[in-house]
């Protein structure tokens, strides 16, 4: 018989599962527009279906995650094996462990690829070969897609989550907006473990995280030109709050004006706008991100970390839980228990 999960374990499991379900469902809708998706699925996509072959997935099947969740998963695996919290060595080893899995690395974005090339083949790193001062093409959401896991490892400790996020993500994402976006997600995920937390607390934590992210990365970040992540989170939240009772309107308004694309200043603000629009409801939030299209898997994955931690695994349908583990060879429940053990061990040391 399975051991009964504690509240903390159930929330960690919820966060991991929420992220994995969001990634997997969003991988089906990634790249398409909301109007197109609505027509194709004759309404909203709310299931882990077989991806179509004209989207972004490669040899995928229902329940399979993409780069978003998998890079965090393998980093967590390395940390658990080594019984260590995040440090530079864990971040590098986690990334390289992930790189051994072509079924997921096929989705690798430009900044993650650049970070990995710097580690294994510097001649292929765009940051080493380009003569541009500002590499604006690297202001992507790939830090934020994986940083939720730092909220999980630092459940309840927002500042440590932010600090560990910078350590984890600066290998691949070396500019301030990408790191600020990553810190927004991990800060909100860490905050979500508090008792009696509200969705407004999560939004405030996200804004705090992004401000801290800019501050902490100022000394080493590469210069770039990009919209401001903090301003855009505030704006997205305002849109979300103004249309809380109208799922379709908020989703379209966020996709049309904030955008939910690859950029750190789109998908992350959009995720917070959706949390506001759905008043923190996990499944609604995931469905909104999935059906908004564009970089749906990243946006939904981030929402999943945050709201999964808030509500725990029980709000996620059981068939999703099974399918995610089966399709990817994961055991997320076990991983959740191991993470709490690592946290308790660290506390005792």
């Amino acid at each position: 018989m399975k051991e009964v999960l504690t509240d903390r374990q159930g929330r960690i499991y919820g966060s991991l599962l929420g992220a994995a379900v969001g990634d997997s469902m969003g991988a089906i809708s990634e790249g398409f527009s909301p109007e197109f998706l609505k027509q194709r699925y004759n309404g909203y996509l709310t299931d882990l279906l077989q991806p179509t072959d004209d989207g972004m997935t490669v040899d995928s099947h229902p329940g399979m995650v993409s780069d978003d969740f998998s890079v965090a998963y393998y980093t967590a695996e390395v940390m658990l094996e080594n019984h260590r919290m995040m440090d530079h060595d864990m971040a590098v080893k986690g990334l390289l462990r992930w790189w051994e899995h072509p079924e997921y690395t096929v989705y690798c974005g430009p900044s993650s690829r650049n970070g990995i090339m710097k580690l294994i083949d510097p001649d292929k790193a765009v940051s080493h070969t380009s003569n541009l001062k500002c590499l604006n093409g690297l202001v992507t959401n790939g830090g934020a897609m994986k940083s939720g896991i730092m909220g999980v490892f630092n459940a309840g400790d927002v500042d440590q989550a932010i600090s560990d996020t910078i350590t984890m993500c600066r290998i691949t994402h070396t500019n301030a907006p990408a790191l600020a976006a990553a810190c927004a997600v991990s800060a909100a995920a860490a905050k979500a473990f508090d008792n009696d937390v509200t969705y407004l607390d999560l939004i405030n934590a996200g804004i705090y995280g992004s401000e801290k992210g800019y501050e902490l990365s100022a000394s080493f970040a590469d210069p770039v030109c990009a919209p401001d992540v903090v301003s855009k989170i505030r704006w997205a939240v305002e849109i979300g709050l103004s249309h809380q009772d109208d799922f379709e309107t908020t989703m379209i308004e966020l996709a049309d004006t904030i955008g939910s694309g690859l950029w750190a200043y789109e998908a992350i603000p959009c995720a917070f706008g959706m949390i506001a629009a759905c008043k923190g409801d996990l499944l609604k939030g995931l469905y909104m991100a999935v059906n908004a299209g564009q970089d749906a898997d990243s946006t939904a994955c981030m929402i999943g970390y945050i709201l999964g931690a808030m509500h725990g695994y029980s709000v996620i349908p059981e068939r999703f839980r099974k399918l995610i583990d089966e399709a990817n060879g994961f055991d997320l429940r076990k991983m959740a228990i191991e993470i709490t053990k690592l946290q308790e061990g660290v506390k005792d040391e």
Binding site: F32, S33, F36, E253, A255, T257, G259, G261, Q294
Partner: peptide, 14 residues
């Protein structure tokens, strides 16, 4: 080709 991205008219207005 259909694509996904922000709405140009709405962003002009903003």
């Amino acid at each position: 080709r259909p694509v996904a991205g922000c709405n140009i008219a709405k962003k002009i207005a903003l």
